[in-house]
Design a protein around this nucleic acid. Structure first.
Lengths: 82, 82
DNA sequence: ATATTTTATGCTACAAGGCGTATAAAATTG
DNA sequence: CAATTTTATACGCCTTGTAGCATAAAATAT
């Protein structure tokens, strides 16, 4: 499964989904990624101020990676809804 | 073209590459994304503290999107080098 | 080589992140 | 329902991001 993430909320959702698939609590993830449980919570809830470092560390622990690419044509024609 | 980005530096490189393809200066991008030229510079240079908001805003202006997915098998066997 | 454009860096000010710690609220389990 | 686990929030502290503004350094163009 691959999730397109164009907003902090979508990023957070992807992280949460994966964490749950792995049956980890926020504390578990935090321990492995060297982040507080509260920080994991903030990330998953889509706080826009979350730092790249935090995301990268969480992704690594979760066995996830990020890809950056052009938006697909169809996507370009529809404005993101915020 | 799709770039895997597992570190702030790789993220920054993807942003810079795309910006140059579009023949925009950091100031141009900054103006469109509502970011200072200095902030764009920091993002492209891989400052880990850069906020998700900053990345998201830049990607949107550049017509890029982020995808989050499992690391491919081959990738898992090789530790990232930092 | 010189002028112009672009990028990196510095200043101050303010806002916010993430830390430790702790607790309240919510969800899950028995 | 009660006990347990998980998640969201809060306080104080220190660090850091981003803002506006400005300039130095580097790269590109003439």
């Amino acid at each position: 499964m691959e999730q397109i993430a164009r907003s902090p909320k979508q990023i957070g959702a992807a992280v949460r989904r994966r964490r749950r698939t792995l049956k980890l609590s926020q504390s578990d993830l935090g321990a492995k990624a060297d982040l507080r449980q509260a920080t994991v919570s903030a990330l998953e809830n889509g706080k826009p101020g979350t730092q790249l470092r935090t995301l990268i560390d969480a992704l690594a622990v979760l066995g996830l990676e990020m890809a950056i690419r052009e938006r697909s044509r169809a996507d370009k024609e529809i404005e993101d809804i915020f």
